[in-house]
Design a protein around this nucleic acid. Structure first.
Length: 589
RNA sequence: GGAGCCGUAGUGUAGAUGGUUAACACGCCAGCCUGUCAAGCUGGAGAUCGCGGGUUCGAGUCCCGUCGGUUCCGCCA
């Protein structure tokens, strides 16, 4: 065989090719050797097709060669497409009504037996999968995930290109800035003792591109954050980064909503109702105890403190007097079904999340609760009423600051929603969370820090209290949430250097620090800045949700482990003394 | 930084309360087999039970430490 290049792909072969001679390239997915006839499922990225080695159709030495084929050998095969014999179609296979009778073939590459099955989707230890990632990626599951990622990115690029966005790259070697996550830093050879930082996001550059007059920018941007990992967090990840000039919040929300819906509708084949609902940050915290509420089920948080401020039960009355709240959720029916052990588990979880305690009430013929004896009948019935309690329900109460009650009850709500099967997995509940607080007080640093980032504009109505009541200022910020996961977030940016300087001062920067860290940015805004706003989406998370996976590792071709290593290339690794010397670095111990 | 779970042939698992030769399936190797598609039948090889220490007459099993994977908390503007 001289010519080995394929004329068709495996997954394409169908009845329209019957009687044609075709050439296929691919991997041996599985072989079935009957001693006489040998069946092989040949695999390429488009799918599988059955090829048949029949001793009656093949030269003797070629058939002998066919008998030596094993899993993952790479072949070029030539043969005639035929309909399978009556009754031998394989309905489970896309190409199952045809097969290819091989008349000539070539082994392009032999293969060792793989360390885990590639032809079946069995769970394999992640250690081995990551070490042999290139083999894991051959498996159907991950092939589909990576294919889907490409499709989604294509849709996003097409959408943005059609809407006048320019794709522009920004530096990977940039400068460490004080706010935000821990940076990955890169030593400079030319400037001993100085370091670049890898970007946590292209935030400042995209704003400068607006100042530069490009008006609409996007980038499928790799971002780096040296923080501990999670199932949905990798040290390097990808953002769909977007910025627009001469727009306000409504413009961004409108066009981004269109883009995301297009991605989900095309990739999932569903219809998503528009517009996507909106909720203020405050309402989200009030009702769901979360800034990214999962609205697929109820069990909302309720303030039950109304009639408790004078309660003889000090936990309630003191908390309220000190500016705290008493809030609760109603685990419908769980009073009747939960064992004491299960309730104790909830109490334990609540305390691990920072609650001083979790008060439960089981509604039976009377209300059973460890604190019942401290409460009047009126107080109990007002709590039950506030939570819509009925016989058989389990009420869970936390008395603490608004923040603590939100965290604890919000998490309990999610835990119970999962445990009780209240979540309809087919739902796609999108939600815009708007009017975020601009700043929050950081107890550790003893100063206000930006909730979003320091370039986020305050609501016009709140600008006046920026210095006097920083904690009350709301921001022109918005997050897009899907089923309780943050897909992305953005804001209208501060486009006047005076306001930007005020913002930095509120964050506790001295004039000198502002000049040193952000001087170029303040200066830039003095040369004519268009109003602009932007957003960034977590691409990996979007693909994860599209693919119905539970970790972004499945949608990243070469992900890292929970300890931020790459088990295949064994990164991070040592460098030579010479490299260290060139960089003027000394490793301590 | 903290907590939980996991680690037994190549892969997935079993191995109550410590007991003699560590079991099963798939895969692999060999033989048979001309219509299978998770092909079948017969036979075979393959495990220092993650690693180190301890308790014990005896440890895959109990204890301590350690390494790796994973999940969560902290952290992630």
């Amino acid at each position: 065989m001289v010519q080995w290049k394929r004329t068709h792909s495996c997954g394409q072969v169908d009845r329209s090719l019957v009687d044609q001679e075709i050439t296929l390239n691919g991997w041996v997915n599985r072989r079935r050797d009957h001693g006489g006839v040998i069946f092989v499922d040949l695999r390429d990225r488009d799918g599988l097709v059955q090829i048949v080695f029949n001793p009656d159709l093949l030269a003797q030495e070629l058939f002998a060669l066919a008998e030596r084929l094993r899993s993952e050998f790479v072949l070029s095969v030539t043969g005639k497409v035929v309909m399978r014999p009556e009754g031998q179609e394989n309905k489970a296979m896309k190409t199952g009504e045809v097969e290819v009778l091989i008349t000539d073939f070539k082994v392009l590459s032999e293969a060792k037996t793989p360390p885990f099955p590639i032809d079946r989707d069995v769970d394999v230890d992640e250690n081995i999968r990551l070490k042999y990632r290139y083999l894991d990626l051959r498996r159907n599951d991950l092939q589909e995930c990576i294919k889907l990622r490409h499709k989604a990115v294509s849709i996003i690029r097409d959408f943005l290109n059609e809407n006048g966005f320019y794709e522009i790259e920004t530096p990977m070697l940039t400068k460490s800035t004080p706010e935000g996550a821990r940076d990955y830093i890169v030593p400079s050879r030319v400037h001993p003792g100085n370091f670049y930082a890898l970007p946590q996001s292209p935030q400042m550059f995209k704003q400068l591109l607006m100042l530069a007059g490009f008006e609409r920018y996007y980038q499928i941007a790799r971002c780096f954050r040296d923080e501990d990992l999670r199932a949905d967090r990798q040290p390097e990840f990808t953002q769909v980064d977007i910025e627009m000039s001469f727009v306000d919040r409504e413009d961004i929300i409108e066009i981004m909503e269109k883009m995301i819906i297009e991605v989900f509708e095309q990739c999932r084949g569903v219809k998503i109702p528009t517009p996507i609902p909106r909720m203020s940050y405050q309402e989200a915290m009030d009702r769901f105890g979360s800034d990214r509420p999962d609205t697929r089920f109820e069990m909302e948080l309720k303030d039950v403190g109304e009639n408790l401020k004078d309660s003889g039960f000090k936990v309630f009355s003191e908390t309220i007097k000190n500016g705290g709240v008493v809030r609760g959720i109603n685990a419908k029916g769980c009073g009747a079904t939960f064992a004491r052990r299960e309730i104790d588990q909830l109490v334990e979880m609540a305390s691990s999340w920072g609650a001083k305690g979790l008060i439960w009430m089981v509604i039976g013929e009377t209300v059973k609760s460890p604190v019942a004896k401290f409460l009047t009948e009126n107080e109990i019935s007002s709590i039950v009423e506030a939570l819509g309690g009925e016989e058989g329900d389990l009420l869970l109460l936390v008395a603490d600051s608004f923040e603590v009650t939100s965290v604890v009850l919000g998490r309990l709500r999610l835990f119970l929603g999962n445990k009780l099967g209240l979540i309809d997995e087919n739902k796609l509940n999108f939600l815009w969370v708007v009017d975020w607080p601009l700043l929050e007080y950081d107890e550790e640093e003893k100063r206000y820090v930006a909730v979003h980032h320091p370039f986020t504009a305050p609501l016009d109505s709140d600008v006046d209290i920026l210095e006097t009541e920083p904690g009350k200022v709301r921001a022109k910020a918005y997050d897009l949430v899907l089923n309780g996961t943050e897909l992305g977030g953005g804001s209208v940016r501060i486009s006047h250097s005076e306001l930007q300087e005020r913002m930095f001062k509120v964050l506790g920067f001295s004039s000198e620090q502002i000049q040193e860290q952000f001087g170029f940015l303040i200066e830039a805004y003095r040369y004519g800045a268009p109003p602009h706003a932007g957003i960034a989406f977590g691409l990996d998370r979007i693909i994860m949700l599209l693919a119905g996976r539970s970790t972004i590792r499945d949608v990243i071709a070469f992900p890292k482990t929970a300890s931020a290593t790459d088990l295949m290339v064994e990164a991070p690794g040592n460098v030579s003394p010479r490299q260290l010397q060139e960089l003027n670095l000394i490793i301590k111990s």
